[in-house]
Amino acid sequence: MAGLIGKKIGMTSIYSPDGAVIPVTAIEAGPCKIVSIRNKNKDGYEALVVGFGEKKEKHLTKPLKGLFEKAKVAPAAMLKEFKNFDIAAYKVGDDLTVELFAEGDKVKVSAKSKGKGFQGVVKRHGFSGVGGQTHGQHNRERAPGSIGQSSWPSRVFKGTRMAGRHGYSQVTVSNLKVVKIIPEKNIILVKGAIPGAINSIVEINK
């Protein structure tokens, strides 16, 4: 079990030895420093607090500054907790690299998806719109249709799917195969697409 923070570089293709094209996403993952370790006695759960990227010291808040000073680690831009490590094997200040993963592993990748802005129900919830374009129908092609009943309940139920902000939500894609690892460049190639735009921060879990 292992996890790492990375940055999405983009998609490309590589070839398998038998000539098949494999679509891959490149993630620049790690090296991440362990900033702190959560333990059962003090925090009630076990986890590694892992930092990724760089941040100027003048942009740190005082609590964060204290955290990094205590760990004797350079300030990181992004902090995440990973519960899926065996914490006994690690200590504060250790480096985590892509070598945590091996080719052929199945990983989960989580990230914020691309924001789509204010979208209608057809795009946002997969509604099919109202009716066809013929038989006199003229302006309801992408409309939601009825959103409720009549005198009972005289209101719209909470959670009814309607138009609104779409995208920019946490999305996880599981069972992605690790196709290749390039340790000297801190690159991990996973088969298929992952959520988020290029340069967005992603979390990889095994």
Partner: peptide, 11 residues
């Protein structure tokens, strides 16, 4: 994007 090109140049 350059990073991506470097990555596959060898293939």
């Amino acid at each position: 994007m350059d990073k991506l090109n470097d990555l596959v140049a060898g293939t």
